[in-house]
Simulated scan of single mutants.
Amino acid sequence: MLRSMYAGISGMKNFQTKLDVIGNNIANVNTAGFKKGRVTFQDMMSQTTAGAQGPTATRGGVNPMQVGLGSQMGTIDNIHTQGFRQTTNNPLDLQLEGDGMFVLQDADDSTYYTRAGNFYLDDNDNIVNPDGYYLRGFTADDNGEITTGIGNLSIPETAKSFSIQTDGTVNYVNEDNETIVAGQILLASFSNPSGLEKAGSNLFINSPNAGLAENLVTPETEGTASIVSGALEMSNVDLAEEFTEMITAQRGFQANTRIITTSDEILQELVNLKR
Rank of each mutant, 00 (worst) to 15 (best):
T262A: 14
V39S: 07
G70A: 03
N236V: 06
I26A: 03
T244F: 03
T179G: 10
I185H: 06
A240G: 11
P55M: 03
I146T: 04
L216I: 07
A7H: 04
A199E: 10
N90G: 15
D131M: 08
N256I: 01
L267K: 00
P64K: 01
E220V: 11
K36W: 09
D122S: 14
G168I: 06
F41A: 12
I150H: 06
M45H: 03
V271I: 12
F204V: 02
D108Y: 10
T40Q: 04
L153W: 14
L2T: 15
N129K: 12
N272G: 15
K160E: 10
L196H: 05
G98Y: 09
A32K: 01
V62F: 00
L187D: 07
T87P: 02
M45R: 02
G11P: 06
T166F: 04
F34A: 11
T169H: 08
I127T: 12
N124M: 15
E265I: 07
T224H: 03
S154I: 07
D142L: 15
P219C: 08
L104A: 06
Q82R: 14
D141C: 09
L187T: 07
N171M: 14
Q16N: 13
D77P: 10
Q105N: 05
E175H: 09
A107R: 03
T87E: 09
P64S: 03
G117R: 01
K13S: 13
V181R: 15
A213P: 07
T87M: 03
V173E: 15
R258Y: 13
L270C: 07
S10G: 02
G195V: 09
K13W: 07
T218N: 06
R251L: 10
T147L: 14
I150S: 06
T40S: 13
D122H: 11
D141F: 12
N78R: 11
S161G: 13
A7R: 05
I22W: 10
A199H: 03
Q95R: 09
N152K: 15
D109M: 09
I180A: 15
D93H: 11
G117S: 05
Y172D: 08
A50F: 08
T244N: 09
V62S: 00
L239G: 05
V217A: 05
G98W: 07
A140R: 01
F162D: 11
S161I: 05
L232D: 04
E241H: 09
G54W: 00
G183W: 09
V217D: 08
I266V: 15
N202Q: 08
L216W: 12
R275H: 10
A7Y: 06
I266S: 01
A159R: 02
D122T: 11
N30M: 03
E241T: 13
L212T: 08
I150V: 12
R251Y: 13
V128R: 03
A159E: 07
I205G: 04
A199C: 05
L96F: 15
I150Y: 08
L212Y: 02
Q105H: 02
E97Y: 08
D238W: 02
N30P: 10
T257A: 13
P64H: 01
T166N: 13
G74S: 14
L121C: 06
R115K: 15
F253A: 01
P130A: 12
V29D: 10
T224S: 13
A27D: 14
Q268I: 04
P156L: 14
E222K: 04
N174K: 11
G200W: 04
Q66S: 09
